[in-house]
């Protein structure tokens, strides 16, 4: 059972049962939809920014959609970590998280190692279940899609 306990840590189940920042934001908030064609998971990320470019601050973030405990809890923890931080800080957080998940092609930048993942560290157990890594990063890719394309649709496949 050790493997499963690693995957379904209490903090993960807590975010799954009681997702944070659940809901929608009206325009002009940015909206992006992500889906995993493999399992049908869907996540919608809404971002409300103030300021310009990398210095813009995420005033509010909301998560919509439905999916498994890993995709939903990861997105919930992500929303908690991102609120009130700048775009640059959150891009670094995303790099750090995706590196934790062993995603290829992440180029770490100075200072990434120093970023405290907090509760997100609990998702490390996902690494033992490679099929589920896509679930864990779905919300993050959707967030990046929201920033880069100003909205739209992304896919983890």
């Amino acid at each position: 059972m050790s493997g499963l306990e690693d995957l379904y840590r209490e903090i993960i189940l807590d975010h799954y049962r009681t997702p944070r920042n659940r809901g929608e934001l009206d325009p002009p908030a940015i909206k992006a939809e992500g889906h995993n064609p493999l399992c049908g998971d869907e996540i919608t990320v809404y971002l409300s920014l103030s300021g310009e470019g990398d210095d813009a601050v995420i005033d509010d973030i909301k998560i919509g959609g439905q999916g498994c405990s890993i995709s939903q809890s990861s997105a919930s923890m992500m929303s908690q970590s991102m609120k009130g931080k700048t775009v640059a800080e959150n891009r670094a957080l995303a790099r750090r998280f995706k590196a934790l998940m062993g995603i290829d092609g992440i180029e770490p930048q100075d200072g990434d190692d120093a970023i405290d993942l907090g509760d997100l560290e609990a998702l490390e157990g996902v690494m033992k279940f490679p099929v589920r890594i896509k679930c864990a990063v779905l919300g993050w890719n959707t967030f990046l899609q929201a920033l880069d394309a100003g909205g739209g649709t992304t896919s983890t496949e």
Binding site: L4, C39, C68
Partner: peptide
């Protein structure tokens, strides 16, 4: 429960 989670637990 999401089917992914069900199948994960069954796989154990």
């Amino acid at each position: 429960l999401h089917p992914h989670d069900v199948s994960q637990v069954l796989d154990e």
